[in-house]
Nucleic acid binder design. Structure first.
Length: 592
RNA sequence: GGGGCCGUAGCUCAAUUGGUUAGAGCACUGGACUGUCGAUCCAGAGGUUGCGGGUUCGAGCCCCGUCGGCCUCGCCA
């Protein structure tokens, strides 16, 4: 060890000790005859003083020190001069009087400094990630991430789970996200796929009798990125045998309570609140509602039916809905221009045809473009339905179910952020349960699995699986934190007959099923226990616990929106020889 | 694949309606200074305004294309 202590360690009780510190030069204050250096490592900062007493040679070296140089100082811990303590530093009561110093490595003038107040552009931060990672915020986040993972591991170990690793090189499966492919050198024209999740392996482990499995698993999906989505991400993956949905939810409830308490000092009340998928869509238009604030959706389709107003009547007559949300008491903050912007937002982003709205003025009258089209009686009922008071603003969408859901969810989220309807430090945990088994894919005119093809229906829906697939609800559950899907899981199908019925509905032929999932179907036939589990998105959990708004800041080496690593410049080209070995030819890109 | 925002010194930003030699703070280089802690003071250096084209007497500013970053719709079982 070059050092005797870290830069965050020394206190007044250490005064008089001879110590050696190593670290990066955070800042220097050069007085000619006396130089102060703040030396930094990931534990903190300590002020080192170099004076003529340290020797002329050392003073000369100190004079040449610049930000981010790596240096070693040996000296004596001393108290600061009377009244010169630095309250901002944990080590601010002491300083190290240097007797020896050594420049361990010079730093080129960096493109930015870890301690600078203005944030550099994200492209620079990613290109020079090793400098960005020196920033206190990044170090705090990665330390939090490490603590979260440790807490998870401890929790599952305490509950008799065993950690089993599953392959990274697997096979491509139909359905789901686009796979990242890895060519096989040995097998001409054959490819491995990187796992989208260890789903099938963990089910096989259940068949094998490893009734409580857990893994911190890296997963890969070749889809477009978002603030909360990376092509490569980490899941806490677990699976249990001889359980129902309650057991899995209960196990995760316990984990969340422990995490919230140990890392945020929050007491969660268990069980965490739950609502069904149908309730979530009705009240919030989203299967991952942000419950830190209200603004529930109100359905007024029945009132719209009584109106001659074309926009309302047209929507309900076509089998659609008129639904809206109310902003309490802040109508005066919504100018015509701002409402026009919101109208553009729902039209553009969610394909709504328009946005109907009314403001309730102080005298109870309405300010609204629709007031001259909608009958007074209907307007009165609308006001009653929304429990309107003066100063309220109501926004309505008239459209099919999907558009009203997406549009109102979009409005709700945007308005809550703009109006600051929640405390950024607030955390809200809940479950959304009983998802539909299937969604209808209009484009391909077929049923697709909402979660995955191995999801078990509720026992009471088993009978109508074939006759009325739309009505069937799954034993599925999503963990929602502050409007983000933090995790999701299901009870799995554990008999091959039910699995076959589901495959049929999904248009997966017995041949294809045998080809792609034959091993799973086989396994289910050899004594598969009832089982289910869940996977949590660790990057997202870290993001939410850290109060951040993007997942890249929770990952040491993330990728850009175009799925590139700016530091290593991956993906890159490879040698022609490598391609030959893999029997791969690269097409010329199409001319634009 | 679609929409939006951004790109000016190493960094963060400014630059009137399109108008003289593109500025500031920090960083950098040199100098002064023995109690600072974002030290201070003096001096200096630093620019293909992302790139390519167009409009114009004249473009950092307007138009088209392109590259890069971010947000978002589609997509993500």
């Amino acid at each position: 060890m070059l050092r005797s202590h870290t830069c965050g360690q020394l206190r007044s009780s250490d005064i008089g000790q001879q110590v050696t510190l190593c670290g990066w030069v955070d800042s220097t204050r050069d007085y000619g005859g006396m130089i102060f250096i703040d030396l930094r490592d990931r534990y903190g900062k300590t002020q080192v003083v170099v004076t003529p007493d340290s020797g002329d040679e050392n003073l000369e070296i100190a004079k040449r020190l610049r930000g981010e140089d790596v240096a070693l100082f040996t000296g004596t811990v001393a108290s600061r001069l009377e009244g010169k303590d630095n309250e901002k530093l944990a080590t601010g009561g002491i300083e190290v009087r240097a007797s020896r110093l050594q420049l361990l490595n010079r730093c080129k003038t960096p493109p930015f400094f870890p301690n600078q107040e203005e944030m550099p552009g994200e492209d620079l931060r990613l290109r020079y990630r090793y400098i960005d990672l020196r920033r206190e915020q990044m170090q705090r986040t990665l330390v939090l991430r490490s603590a979260i993972i440790k807490t998870m591991r401890d929790y599952f170990a305490d509950n008799d789970f065993i950690d089993v690793e599953t392959p990274i090189l697997g096979r491509s499966t139909p359905e789901g996200a686009r796979d990242y492919l890895v060519p096989s050198r040995v097998h001409w024209g054959h490819f491995f796929a990187l796992p989208q999740s260890p789903q099938l392996y963990k089910q096989i482990l259940m068949v094998a009798g490893y009734d409580r499995y857990v893994q911190i698993a890296r997963c890969f999906r070749d889809e477009d990125l978002r603030a909360d989505r990376q092509p490569e991400f980490t899941q806490l993956d677990m699976e249990m045998s001889f359980v129902d949905a309650e057991d899995v939810i209960g196990m995760i409830d316990g984990l969340m309570k422990k995490l919230a308490k140990e890392l945020l000092g929050l007491e969660l009340t268990l069980p965490l609140p739950r609502m069904t998928y149908d309730q979530a869509m009705e009240r919030y238009g989203s299967d991952a509602p942000d419950l830190r604030y209200g603004m529930q959706i109100v359905d007024c389709s029945d009132l719209a039916r009584q109106s001659e107003f074309r926009v309302f009547r047209g929507a309900v007559d076509a089998g659609g809905f008129v639904r809206g949300i109310k902003i309490d008491k802040r109508a005066d903050e919504f100018s015509r221009k701002r409402i026009d912007e919101l109208t553009e937002f729902v039209k553009h982003d969610f394909a709504a045809k328009g946005l109907a709205w009314f403001r309730v003025e102080p005298d109870g009258s309405l300010w609204s473009p629709i007031s001259k089209n909608v009958e007074p009686a209907v307007i009165e009922q609308l006001k009653t339905r929304f429990a309107c008071e003066p100063g309220d603003l109501v926004m309505l969408l008239a459209d099919n179910w999907e558009v009203t859901c997406k549009g109102l969810n979009g409005l709700r989220r945007r308005l809550a952020a703009e109006l600051k309807l929640f405390d950024p430090k607030q955390m809200h945990f809940s479950w959304v349960v009983e998802f539909p088994m299937f969604e209808h894919d209009a484009e391909e005119e077929r049923w697709v699995a909402m979660h995955h093809p191995f999801t078990a229906p509720r026992p009471q829906d088993l009978a109508q699986l074939k006759s009325d697939p739309q009505a069937c609800r799954a034993q599925a559950y999503d963990l929602i934190v502050n409007g983000y899907e933090a995790g999701g899981g299901t009870i799995r199908i554990h008999d091959s007959e039910t699995q076959q019925v589901v495959f049929d509905l999904l248009g997966i032929s017995p041949e294809m099923a045998k080809d792609r999932f034959g091993f799973l179907l086989d396994a289910l036939g050899y004594g598969a226990p009832p089982h289910g589990g869940i996977a949590l998105g660790i990057d997202r959990v870290v993001m939410l616990f850290a109060g951040l708004d993007n997942i890249r800041d929770c990952i040491a080496f993330p990728k850009t929106q175009r799925a590139m690593d700016l530091m290593t410049e991956a993906p890159g080209q490879v040698e022609t020889k490598q391609l030959h070995e893999l029997h791969i030819q690269v097409e010329t890109p199409p001319a634009k």
